[in-house]
Every structure is written in structure tokens, then in C-alpha cells.
């Protein structure tokens, strides 16, 4: 059934090109093969997503009684799984947003500052190069290699104790984990942000910056009034990239928050155990949960999509 639907779409687009080209002769054997090939690849890539989506709307008997990519029928259709996934993940969504948004914004901003310093400022090249080398080295440190030092660091720097005045306000002290996640993600995201911004600022007109200097602007003012307003496209790239990385990261949450029973448990931790029990896997629930967890990254991409394309092109 679903194959039929795709074939329809394919023919429609084939006639479209023929019509717009204004000549039926344009549809030769090569084109037919090309479109068939493209269609095959499209199907290949979309089937898992389509299967996940239709599964999330099926009852448990629907999941076991039909092919994974077949849509639910009247009796096996239900919204209940989405409802229970949302109930389970709701607090996780908020917790994740609590660290993913600040960490993304702070790392992008700091990356932009640092890149401005090592490109457009008039500091001597011999001082800029080692700083840049440090940033580049930072990109290649695998997260797995720093897990032990990281957890040791956070046991020495005990936010649980230091932020006592916050917990006194009635906030659960599990949220120390959220603060730790912000700091950790900013630290490990900063190198890639800096290098991305650096390549962007390298291409910025040097004469324009010089013109601003002659116009009497200080290095800070040039950043604020010239460089920052022109950084939009690169901010889109960095925000999308960083947000997706941080939102989807499981490793640091496992080390720093550890359990899904914690009040500050991020969505990825809850999702990991969602729909899993001794009786087996509730596939429909897991699929619904996965889609809910993926929605924010999708939303960020749609919000910055246009600037993203521009930033990637430069």
C-alpha cells in the first residue's frame, strides 16, 4: 500500500518535469532510471521513520499483529501511547531544556568571542596560533576518555554543597546535576564552536573592520555593532549543531545525573528505560517517546533553517 502511494508521487513529479520542460522528448530512459533510483533511495531512508511513526499509533496487539511499516487499522489505532509517553517524558523535556538551552547559547556566544579574538583583533599572530591550537586539540578529545576525570572533578567541586542557598529555596538538590551539565557541555562544546566561528570571521572583510577602527570604534564596540550582527548565519549553524548534540547526549547525563528516578532526569535518561519491562518491550510506547524526544531538535532546525543554509554555504 505504502509502495503504491510512493509510485503515485513519483509519476506526478515525472510529469511535472516533462510539462515544465515543454517537451515529452525530455523523458528518456536515463531519466526514468534516475528517478526510479532516487525513489528507491528515498524509500530506503524513509521506511524506518515511517515505521516508527505508524507503530507509535498502534495498540500492542496491532504492533504484534501487523508488519512494522503497515499503518494502523481502525481497531488497532490509538493515541494512548503518545499520551503515556508524554506523561512519562514531560518532566524530562523540561529538565533537558533547562540545561540544553543555556549550554547551547553560552557555548555559541563564548565561541564567537574567542573566534573574534583569534581572527579580527590585532593581537600578534604568534600569540593567536597557540590559543587556536589548544581549541583545535579540544575538538579531538573523545568524551569517553574524560568520563572518569570529569566525575572526579565534579565530586571535588561539589555544587550540591556550594549552591546550598538555592536548595534552601525549595528546589530539589538533584538540580545540581543540571548546572554540572551546563558547565560540562559549554566546556566541551566550546572548541568546535570557536573553530566554526573562526572560519566565518576569517572570511569577513578585513577592510570593513579597519574602517570601523578608523571610525573610532573600540574592539568591543566593533564586535557588538559590526561582527555580532553579521554573525547570524553562523550562529544558526552553531545553535542547531550544539543544541542537537547537547539534547541527544546520553553519556554526560549518565555520569552526572545517573538515574531516571532523579528529579532532574533529562529526557534521554527517561527515554532509555521507557517501555521496557520484564514482560517485554512496548514498541509503540518507545516509538512515541522517541518522536517526542526528537521534536525540540526538529523545531530548532525549522526555526533557524534559512540562516543555517546560508551559514553552511559560506
Amino acid at each position: 500500500m505504502s509502495n503504491d502511494a510512493r509510485t503515485d508521487g513519483g509519476t506526478a513529479s515525472a510529469t511535472d518535469t516533462g510539462a515544465s520542460a515543454g517537451a515529452l522528448a525530455g523523458i528518456d530512459g536515463y531519466r526514468v532510471l534516475l528517478y526510479l533510483g532516487l525513489l528507491g533511495m528515498l524509500t530506503f531512508f524513509l521506511i524506518p521513520i515511517e515505521s516508527g511513526l505508524v507503530t507509535s499509533f498502534k495498540t500492542s496487539s496491532g504492533v504484534s499483529g501487523s508488519l512494522p511499516f503497515a499503518p494502523p487499522t481502525g481497531s488497532t489505532f490509538t493515541l494512548e501511547k503518545w499520551q503515556s509517553a508524554f506523561d512519562a517524558l514531560g518532566r524530562g523535556l523540561i529538565n533537558s531544556a533547562l540545561y540544553a538551552i543555556p549550554a547551547t547559547v553560552i557555548s555559541a556566544l563564548l565561541g564567537s568571542f574567542a573566534a573574534y579574538g583569534i581572527t579580527q583583533s590585532d593581537w600578534k599572530q604568534k600569540y593567536k596560533a597557540p590559543v587556536l591550537a589548544l581549541f583545535v586539540a579540544g575538538i579531538f578529545i573523545p568524551y569517553q576518555a574524560v568520563l572518569v576525570p570529569l566525575s572526579q572533578f565534579w565530586s571535588m567541586v561539589s555544587l550540591q554543597d556550594w549552591l546550598g542557598f538555592v536548595w534552601a529555596l525549595g528546589i530539589n538538590d538533584d538540580y545540581a546535576g543540571v548546572v554540572e551539565l551546563i558547565v560540562t557541555h559549554v566546556a566541551y562544546g566550546l572548541p568546535i564552536c570557536t573553530v566554526l566561528f573562526r572560519s566565518y570571521y576569517k572570511n569577513m572583510s578585513e577592510e570593513m573592520i579597519e574602517a570601523a577602527r578608523l571610525d573610532g570604534a573600540s574592539i568591543r564596540r566593533i564586535y557588538r555593532r559590526i561582527v555580532l550582527p553579521l554573525s547570524g548565519p553562523m550562529f544558526a549553524v552553531v545553535l542547531i549543531y550544539q543544541f542537537t548534540q547537547i539534547w541527544n547526549d546520553l553519556l554526560f547525563t549518565l555520569v552526572l545525573v545517573q538515574t531516571e528516578s532523579s528529579a532532574a532526569a533529562p529526557i534521554v535518561l527517561i527515554l532509555a528505560g521507557l517501555g521496557t519491562s520484564l514482560e517485554g518491550q512496548d514498541f509503540a510506547l518507545r516509538m512515541a517517546g522517541a518522536f517526542i524526544a526528537a521534536l525540540p531538535t526538529l523545531a530548532v532546525y525549522i526555526a533557524f533553517g534559512e540562516e543555517f543554509a546560508e551559514g553552511v554555504a559560506t
Binding site: 577592510e207 579597519e210 574602517a211 570601523a212 553579521l230
Partner: peptide
Amino acid sequence: FQSYALYP
């Protein structure tokens, strides 16, 4: 400047 260097 030769390139005018206007703020775009």
C-alpha cells in the same frame, strides 16, 4: 577603501 568596506 578600494572595496568601500561598507557595513552591509
